[in-house]
Amino acid sequence: MTLTRRDVEGIAMLARLEISEAELPVYAISLSRIVGFFDQLSAAATEGVEPMAHPLENQVQALRDDQITESDQRDRYQGNAPLVAAGLYLVPKVIE
C-alpha cells in the first residue's frame, strides 16, 4: 500500500494538521511503510472472530446517579484558554 502526497493531504485535512509542502513527501514515505507493515495482519485467520474493543471482558458500564455534583468553576478553567471574552471562548468566526 503506497500513500501519495494527495492521500497525506487528505488525511492531514481530516486530522486538521498543517503539513508543509516539504514534509508531505516525507510523511508519504513513512506512512506508506507503516501501512505496508500492517499488511501482515491480513494473513491472520479472523473469520468468525469477534473484534476486541476492550481488555476487560465481561465488564459492563457502571451507571451514575442523576445528581448535580459540579459548581461554577468557569474563571478557573478559562485560565488556560487562549482567548476569552464575556465568559465565551473566542475562535475565528464560524461560518455555518
Binding site: 471574552a85 465565551l88 471562548y89 473566542l90 475565528p92 468566526k93 464560524v94
Partner: peptide, 8 residues
Amino acid sequence: LGKQSGID
C-alpha cells in the same frame, strides 16, 4: 463579536 465567534 466582530470577526470572532463565541463558544458557550
